[in-house]
Design a protein around this nucleic acid. Structure first.
Length: 864
RNA sequence: GGAUGCUUAGCUCAGUUGGGAGAGCAUCGCCUUUACACGGCGGAGGUCGUGGGUUCGAGUCCCUCAGCAUCCACCA
């Protein structure tokens, strides 16, 4: 027997371990159709946040739904080594502990990192468990696994051999704190306050100078020339002449290049090829030198004279002071401009020339672009995110994949000592002693880009790979479409000639209650563990998946988590009631649809509609819509209406029919919990196991299907009449300050034949002492009032004339408005001409009925 | 500069192919009725951002503008 109150802590205890140990999460039933997903592997850097909870709950709902629908569901778990993020965290921790990290060897660090990984993946496992995720742990993978490393090496070599990976010297985004190169999308641009410094560049041999503005004076040590637009009449004559660089007094030429925007600034631009991508391009056109003037940690190098060793920003300050003292500073302008910051360290990114490995993106992007035009197009939910991807792929730059880190897949390239020769291969060169392996590792996203197939055993043609690839669905946030979704797509298209998944579900971000992004600096993050502890995983899951539209951001709202909890409490209590009502010897039997009286037929019909609508929306991955159909059924149709009515019929009916009611209650209860189950597995399991007949677990049950024999709307009119009558009487009493249980007499005119217990229900819910059936001519009987409802009803209560008059007048007004509305439509010749016939007939019927009602009411008023 | 999303009840949000505006919370009144006071019953509250257009009919489709948010690209 269930406890009187829903206690999420008791309900959620021990169930997960049991499911897991029984093997319910393990895929592999070959008799069924496979359905597969891979989890977006969380970073082994810390705790999971609400975004993870949202993302994984979506997947768990799909997994449980599909399993109940009869599929062999594989949901594959795992973690990402998250190169930069993890290495930074570990280094910080070591420094805090007083370790001199500069003395660590690569291997020592890796030993520490693997221990860290074990610890953090343990935390992640605990959180997955408390959320109730039905992950197949027998297939869990990690992005640095041996198997995945094999896949990474193979792909690297294949891309290299096809000319799609190359090593090159280019301007890359350099993070001086983490001392590694970054890809373009790891750089976050935001508007910062800065200064625009105007300097004098004196012309050699002339008593003139050019005004040049820069935001980064420290890069002047790397200037190789000034550039002007050859079409700029102001400066064209200076091309070929020399100026003196005020930073180091070196003479540099003035050259012409059309890149310079005549209208911008002074029209003269300094050119620093090793520290600016555009200047680098200019240097290629004019064959200029590319001096690098900074060290890897962002300090100035030996090319910077007395500033050597100074941090770039310190140098900027000092240099400025010196130039100012020389009289070559013209002015300083405060500006707001976009500055790139490292995603992880937040350091101001320094564009810097270095030798890195790149993936040549154009041909790979084309694979995606072509695929999205074809039959195997990956379906995005919502579809607009397909456009986001396409736009990105059309304009994508080459992807810098080498990172100057230790934690990651070491690049399988080997440099022959004392030679230019490079060897790239899955296995090291035979004469390894003559080679040195590239010390860099690959961008984390390189290995996660292989995740949907590397985790299934590829490049081996394993059973899992053959059975479960391509996967069916991927769920992730829109913020990582570029980082991850696009990379998985082209890697899969390149390596396997097909997309890695059929559909991608894109969701938004979880924001705080004020709509702000949750972040560490604001300290506004909400810990899922805390929510689970307070309200339960089921309430959290329900909240997360039913409070937003696909692709839209969501605000966390404790209020709505509470409301989700209350809903579960409602289900808990309706279950408790039904289980209490069912006799001890209850046996589930087939219900003979022909024997059903009105309300039983009605509720089973509503149930079929609910199953249909919920299923339809589950198939569309619209969990909000699906849940609201169930919600409305539970609250309105079932609890407020049917359940209450059944209490009466259970008192007065024959034993035979009582059994039918029991069967109906049981069927409704079981269906409700099976429909809510994918959202809220814990409470569903608890209730399920309390049913008189049940399997070992709700996880072994099938999803409800529509039963045709119960589709029957012939009682809808009569039920609505009953409900309207009850509502009108209650409303009347409430408006007249009469107690709800104040006795009254009712007279009712049936336009449709009422079902058997109609009058009993009406009596009980209106506290009527007498219900009289009358014919169509409704007249004012002493003290009775006509209520405008579907079936015409008179109510007689202890009320004074004035009350009756007010009510009648109010009802007359309503009828008049209705008549006017219908007439307006019907008097419109275009409406008659063009609207569908059914619509016209509907309006005509309404008009007729309201006119009749009006007549009755006015007669009553007259006779009052 | 380019793109996308949002603008509906006091607040947070739904609104499926165009055919009488919904939920949660808040609010007002009544009810401690034996599933649930984490409840029940009954109310009040919206010219659906602006201005046009298409249509017999627009929250819904098209265009304009405004505000907010996000993404991409960025001129030194």
């Amino acid at each position: 027997m269930l406890e009187t109150r829903y206690d999420h802590k008791k309900v959620e205890k021990n169930k997960y371990e049991n499911w897991k140990n029984k093997g319910y999460f393990t895929a592999g039933d070959k008799s069924k159709t496979p359905f597969s997903m891979v989890i977006p592997p969380p970073n082994v850097t810390g705790k999971l946040h609400l975004g993870h909870a949202w993302d994984t709950t979506i997947q768990d709902i799909i997994a449980r739904y599909k399993k109940a629908k009869g599929y062999d569901v594989l949901w594959l778990p795992g973690c990402d080594h998250a190169g930069i993020a993890t290495q930074a965290k570990i280094m910080n921790k070591l420094k805090q502990d007083g370790v001199d990290t500069t003395k660590l060897t690569r291997q020592e660090f890796l030993d520490i990192a693997w221990k860290w990984k074990d610890e953090y993946s343990k935390n992640i496992h605990e959180q997955w468990a408390s959320l109730g995720l039905s992950l197949d742990y027998s297939r869990e993978r990690f992005t640095l696994d041996k198997g995945l490393n094999d896949a990474v090496k193979k792909v690297f070599v294949d891309l290299y051999e096809k000319g799609l990976i190359y090593r090159g010297e280019k301007i890359t985004n350099w993070d001086p704190i983490q001392m590694t190169a970054l890809s373009n999308i790891e750089v976050i641009h935001h508007d910062d306050k800065g200064q625009f410094y105007y300097f004098k560049y004196h012309l050699v041999g002339l008593d003139k100078y050019l005004e040049v503005a820069t935001t980064r004076p420290e890069t002047m040590f790397g200037d190789v020339c000034l550039c002007v637009n050859p079409n700029d009449k102001r400066y064209v004559d200076y091309i070929g002449k020399y100026v003196i660089n005020p930073a180091n007094n070196e003479q540099i030429p003035i050259i012409g290049d059309e890149y310079v925007d005549i209208k911008f600034g002074t029209g003269v631009m300094k050119c620093t090829p090793a520290h600016d991508p555009n200047d680098f391009e200019i240097s290629k056109r004019h064959n200029l030198a590319r001096p690098i003037i900074m060290n890897k940690d962002g300090t100035m190098n030996e090319k910077c004279g007395k500033y050597v060793g100074q941090d770039r920003f310190q140098c900027r300050k000092n240099l400025l002071e010196d130039i100012k003292n020389n009289g070559d500073l013209i002015k300083i302008e405060n500006i707001v401009h976009s500055v790139g910051h490292s995603e992880r360290s937040n350091a101001v990114v320094e564009p810097m020339l270095s030798k890195q490995w790149f993936v040549k993106m154009k041909p790979l992007a084309k694979l995606i672009l072509d695929n999205q035009k074809g039959k195997n197009k990956v379906k995005f939910v919502p579809s607009r995110f397909n456009k986001v991807l396409i736009r990105w792929m059309e304009n994508v730059d080459d992807w810098c994949i080498s990172r100057q880190l230790w934690w990651g897949h070491q690049i399988p390239a080997y440099y022959k000592k004392d030679s230019q020769e490079i060897y790239v291969g899955v296995n090291p060169p035979k004469d390894i002693e003559n080679y040195v392996q590239d010390s860099d590792v690959l961008d984390t996203w390189f290995s996660s880009g292989l995740w949907p197939f590397s985790t299934l055993g590829w490049p081996n043609k394993s059973d899992d790979f053959l059975r479960y690839f391509p996967t069916d669905v991927l769920s992730t946030g829109y913020d990582i479409i570029f980082f991850w979704v696009s990379r998985m797509m082209f890697q899969s298209l390149f390596n396997l000639n097909k997309p890695p998944f059929k559909s991608v579900i894109i969701h938004g971000l979880v924001r705080d209650e004020l709509g702000r992004k949750m972040s560490k600096s604001l300290g506004n993050g909400v810990d899922p563990n805390e929510v689970i502890s307070n309200f339960g995983a089921d309430a959290l899951r329900y909240f997360l998946t039913t409070n937003s539209t696909p692709g839209q951001d969501m605000r966390y709202s404790q209020e709505k988590v509470e409301s989700s909890y209350n809903y579960l409490n409602k289900i808990w209590n309706l279950a408790r009631y039904i289980l209490n009502v069912l006799p001890n010897d209850f046996k589930n039997e087939n219900i003979d649809a022909k024997k059903l009286d009105g309300f039983e037929a009605y509720i089973l019909n509503r149930l079929q509609i609910t199953i249909k609508q919920v299923t339809r929306n589950m198939e569309k991955y619209d969990f909000n819509a699906a849940s609201s159909y169930l919600y409305n059924f539970v609250y309105d149709d079932f609890c407020s209406n049917y359940l209450e009515m059944s209490k009466i019929s259970l008192q007065i009916e024959s034993d035979e029919y009582k059994n039918i009611i029991h069967q109906v209650l049981y069927k409704c209860l079981k269906t409700i919990i099976l429909l809510i189950y994918p959202y809220c597995p814990f409470i569903s399991e608890e209730i399920y196991l309390s049913l008189p007949e049940h399997k070992e677990s709700i996880m072994l049950e099938n999803y409800p299907v529509v039963e045709r024999k119960f589709i029957n709307d012939e009682f809808d009119g009569c039920v609505n009449l009953l409900l309207d009558c009850i509502k009108d009487v209650r409303n009347y009493k409430s408006n007249h300050k009469l107690a709800p249980n104040c006795p009254c007499d009712l007279m009712i005119n049936f336009r449709v034949k009422p079902f058997k217990n109609f009058k009993n229900y009406l009596k009980r819910f209106t506290f009527a002492t007498n219900i009289e059936e009358i014919d169509t001519s409704l007249t004012n009987k002493d003290g009775a009032i006509y209520l405008h409802s579907l079936g015409d009803m008179l109510i007689k209560v202890k009320a004074n004339k004035e009350d009756l008059k007010i009510l009648l007048e109010k009802n007359i007004k309503v009828e008049q408005q209705e008549i006017l509305r219908a007439q307006n439509m019907l008097n419109n010749p275009n409406f008659i001409k063009k609207a569908p016939k059914e619509k016209i007939a509907l309006e005509e019927n309404k008009l007729k009925k309201h006119q009749e009602n009006l007549l009755t009411l006015t007669n009553q008023l007259k006779n009052l």
